[in-house]
Amino acid sequence: MTQRTRPLPRRRASWKRLRNGLFITPYLVLFVVWIVIPAVAGLAISFTNWNIFTGEVGFAGLRNYVRVLDDDLFLRSLLNTIRYTAYSVLAGNAVSLLLACGLARGFRGKTLFQTIFFAPVVLSIGVTGVIWAWLYNGDFGLLNQWLQSLGIPRIHWLSNPHWAMISVVIMVIWAGAGFNMMIYLAGLLNVPRGLYEAAELDGANGWQRFMYITLPLMKYTFAFTITVSTMGAFQVFDQPYILTGGGPDYATYTYVYHIYSNGFRYFRLGYASALSVILALLIFGVVFVQYRLLTRSRTEY
């Protein structure tokens, strides 16, 4: 039997359009006000020497973009950010996935652990920063006391440039791993159980089941978490700002920290906007390539 779809009466159709429009308007309004307008304004400001206080605008052409070549901290902060992104995205997602795999097995007290792992996500970065600054302190910190009790020499976490960035990454992973863990957990629980049972009957071991069932079926979850983590990592600012102040010797001075300093400490709004445009292009390029690579294979079961 075929069912004929009748066109909606004209009044009902326009009410539906109105209703749909009203539903998306709040988001769209916020999107335009907070994202589109500032982005367009930022692009325009990057070609000027805008004085934020007086409103005076001098056309600078491409001068703000050329100036990055003369700015020793541009490259320094960019390389720091790339290093931070590599560490935090890889290690952070690995930790989240590991936690999710553990929780997905189901055991008594699972919810308690889930809450414990997720709890740091709701802490403010100010609180997290102070806690970790004490833990990391080279002379008084708990971490070094533990290391020393194990016979391992103490580490100057925050005053050694090699360790400082790793310290920031560890803190960020502790504070944020719970968020991706929940997404991974949802992804893991969506993988059909039957596939694992079938693989088990075929003699596949745990590692093989993970590699050939879990990973391929979670590719969209990975694409989401890794893409979002990468975008977040490129914009890291408050964690090093609070924990290390960008030091020692600019070892944890990140790109957005540089934008903030130029814009809000030294009042170079035009230059800060140019730096922001460069970052936006960079993130767009990296995320585009990343997403294409992550979703390339077409595994379906």
């Binding site: 005053s159 050694n160 960008g246 020692p248 010797d249 400490r265 030294y266």
Partner: peptide, 20 residues
């Protein structure tokens, strides 16, 4: 002044922690 302070203080810390 603020930018100058930001810049030289990093160098001072570099010496204090034995990096230079």
């Amino acid at each position: 002044g603020i930018e100058l302070r930001d810049r030289y203080e990093q160098s001072v810390i570099t010496a204090l922690v034995g990096l230079a």
